[in-house]
Design a protein around this nucleic acid. Structure first.
Lengths: 216, 216, 216, 216
DNA sequence: AATGAATGAGAATTCATTCAT
DNA sequence: CATGAATGAATTCTCATTCAT
C-alpha cells in the first residue's frame, strides 16, 4: 500500500505502530496540519529521517491513523456482537460497547472525524469503504433481528447509519452534553431512541442497562 | 472582538461580509489551513493587503465564517419556529427547515463542523456559546410542548442535543446515506425517531410531511 | 512562460535580470545543483522569499541563465555580421567576435555548456531550439558566401555546427590550451582551419587578423 | 588515492569495477548529483553499506567513473595507433577510432564531459593530468608525421587540442548534427579539416574512408 | 484606505554517511 | 565483510504578515 524502503515487513508494522501512537498523541492536540513532522517524530521517538523509511509522505500518517482507529472501533463492534445470540442483546450491547469506546477515545475520535476530509482522494476512498462496511455490519445486526421477528424497521440502512453516526456525539458534542449528563445517560437515551424505533416491546432494564458482557 | 484599524463600522461589516463569502468559497474546497490568504483575497476580490484592514490575522476569518454560518442556521430556526403556534408543528417544522438548510449548505456545513477545532481557545469559547444557545432554543421548543402537555420527555437537554447533532448527518455522512436515500427520507426518519421519543401520539402525516411554510 | 505572482511586467524583467546576474555569480563557482537558493538570494541581493515572486522553482533560474547567456552570444553574432558586406569578412569577423565573447565569459560559458543537461525536457527543448537557430545563422553566413562564389563547401550544415562548437573550446579546454597559447592564437587557428575548408584563396592577414570592427 | 578499509587489493579493484558499471548506468540518466547512493547501490548490486568499504565518499565514484572512462578512450587511441606505421594512416585511423568510441559511448561521454566540473580540486587535477597526457599523445602522432616530412604544422599543440576536443562533438552536439548527418559524415568532415591543415597532399579516399583496421 | 511586493520563519522531504547486527 | 536501518543537516518552497507607495 504505502511504498517504503524497508524490506522487513514485521519491522514495518512495528514501527508504523510506534509512529501511529506518537502521531496520534501529537496530532490530537493541534490537528494534523498544525503538527509538524518534527513534533510527530519527537512524540513517536523516531528520528525525523527514519520516519521516511516507513512512510512516503506526511499524509500517509493520517491514513495510518485512520486505519488504526477505525480498526479498533470495528473490532470492538465484532467482538461485542459475538457475546450474544439474542438479536436484541446483540445489537444494543454492541452499540453500548462501541459507544463506550468512542467516549473513551474521545479526543482521538474527534481528531479522526474532523480530519477525514484532509485525506487525498485515493486514501479517502479506502477509508470510506471501511466505514461503509462498518455501517453494513450494523445493518446486518438489524436485519438479523427483523428476520428473527424481534425488530420492525422500514429502512434498516438509514437506521444503521444513524447508529453509526450516533457514536460521534460524545466526541463532537461532549463539551455540551457532558456538562449536565454522564456518558451513560447519553448512550441510554440513544438506545431508548433506537429501540423504540425498532418496535422492541421492552428492552428490559436489566438487559438494556445491565452489566456488560453477561455472557450467553 | 476583532481589533481593526478602520473606524467606519458599517464599512467594516460590509467588507467582512464580502470577505466571508469569498473565503467560504475558497476554503470549502481545500480546508482552512490549505487555503492561502492570497487565494482568499482573490476569491473575495479584496487586495491581499487590504484584508488586514478588516481583520488582524488569518484565524479571524475562520471565526467570521463560523459566526456567519451559525448565524444563518440560527436565524432559520427562529424564523421557522415563528410560523406555528402548535408546539408539535413548531418543533418538527423547525427541525425540517434547519435540516434542509444544512443539507443545502452541505459543503459549508462540513467545512464548519470539521474546522471548529482549528479555532483558538478564545474564539472557540464564543462559538461554543453560540451553539449552546442554539441547543437551548431547541430545548425550549421541547419544554414548551411538555408544558402544553403534548410532549413527554425525561431529559429535554439530551434530546435537544440529539436534535442539534442530527442536523450534521447529511454533511458528515451524506456520502453514504444519499446513495440509497433522499434527504427527505433521512429527515423523516429523524422526525419519526424524535416524535416517538416525545410520545407524540400521532404526528399526522399531513403535518409531519406536509408542505413547508404552511403559515399559521 | 514562467508563471509568477507579480503583475508588473517591467518589474519582472528588471528583477529577473538582477536574479540572473546574482545567480550566475553564485552558480559559476559550484555548479547549479550545489548552489543553494539561499546563496543565490544572497548573491542577487533579493530576499529568499522574494525570489519566488519572480520564478516558480529553482530550475526556472537555470532556464533564465541559459536564455540570458545565449541571448548575449546570439546578439554578438548578429551585430558582428552586420559590420561587413563581404561574406568572407562577415563570417570570419563574426567568428572572431563570438569567440572573444565566449572567451571573455569563459566561466559563464563553461557553466552553461555543462549545465544544459540539467534542464527539464520542456526547457531543454526551448534552449536547443535557440541553439539550432544560432547554428542556422552561421550556416546562412556560409551559404551567402557560397552564393557569392567565394566559399566552396560540400556540407555547410556540418561546418556551421563545427564553428558553433568551436566557440566552446576556450571554456572547455582553456585550462590546457591557454598554458602555451593565447586566445588569439587559438581563434586564428580555428579561422585558418575553417577558411582552408571553405577554399578561401587568401584570407589576407590584414583582414583575418586585422583590428576588430573596421566598419564597412 | 582513495582511502579504503579493505586490504585485499584485487577485491577492491573488482568491486570498484562493479560499482563503476552500476554507477554509470544510474548516473547517465539523471546526472551525478541527482543520483542517490541508494540508486547507485541498486544499479551496482552492492549493498548501500558495503559501498563504503570500497570508497570513502560519493565523489570518489565520480572520480572512478572519470578514470574508467578516460582509460577506455586512451586505450583505444593507443591500440589504434599501433595498427599502422605510416604517420598519416596512424593519425587519422586513430582519430576515426576514438571518434567512433565516443560516439558509441555518447551518453557516457556526455556525462563525463559535463560532470568533470563537479570534481573537487584534488581529483580534478588528476583527471586533467590524464587528459593532458592524452593530448600529448595526439601531439606526438602529429610531430612524428612532421619529422617524417608528411605533415606541415605551425602549432602541433593547438592542433592536438583541437583533435581531442573534436571527439566531444557527437556527445555534445549530436542532438543537432545527427538530424541531417551520420556519424561517419561528421568524422570525415573533421578528418578532411585536419588533413587540410596538416598539408597532407592527398589523404586518399581508400585510406581516409577505407575499412577499419586494415592491418599494417 | 488600497495595493501588491518583500520578508524570513518554518514546513516537508531527501540523502550521504554511519553503525549495530 | 555485508547488510540495511538510523540519523539529522541541509534543501527547496510556502505563506502569513508587514510596509512602502
Amino acid at each position: 500500500m504505502i511504498n517504503v524502503t524497508i524490506k522487513n515487513g514485521e519491522r514495518i508494522r512495528r514501527k508504523q505502530d510506534q509512529l501511529c501512537r506518537g502521531a496520534m498523541k501529537a496530532c490530537v492536540k493541534k490537528g494534523f496540519h498544525a503538527t509538524s513532522m518534527r513534533e510527530i517524530a519527537d512524540a513517536a521517538e523516531i528520528s525525523l529521517g527514519s520516519i521516511y523509511n516507513y512512510i512516503e509522505k506526511k499524509e500517509d500518517i493520517l491514513f495510518l491513523l485512520h486505519k488504526d482507529f477505525l480498526g479498533r472501533i470495528y473490532r470492538r463492534l465484532d467482538e461485542s456482537a459475538e457475546n450474544f445470540d439474542d438479536p436484541t442483546r446483540q445489537l444494543f450491547n454492541a452499540i453500548r460497547e462501541v459507544f463506550r469506546l468512542t467516549s473513551e477515545l474521545r479526543d482521538q475520535a474527534l481528531f479522526i472525524y474532523t480530519e477525514t476530509k484532509s485525506l487525498s482522494k485515493e486514501y479517502l476512498q479506502e477509508i470510506l469503504k471501511n466505514e461503509s462496511e462498518f455501517v453494513s455490519k450494523i445493518e446486518t445486526l438489524i436485519t438479523n433481528g427483523m428476520d428473527a421477528g424481534v425488530f420492525k424497521c422500514k429502512n434498516p440502512s438509514i437506521l444503521a447509519n444513524f447508529i453509526a453516526f450516533s457514536f460521534a456525539i460524545i466526541p463532537l458534542r461532549g463539551w455540551n452534553l457532558l456538562v449536565k449528563n454522564t456518558e451513560d445517560d447519553v448512550v441510554n437515551e440513544w438506545i431508548d431512541l433506537f429501540s423504540l424505533r425498532l418496535n422492541v416491546e421492552s428492552v428490559s432494564d436489566d438487559l438494556n442497562r445491565g452489566p456488560n458482557r453477561m455472557g450467553k
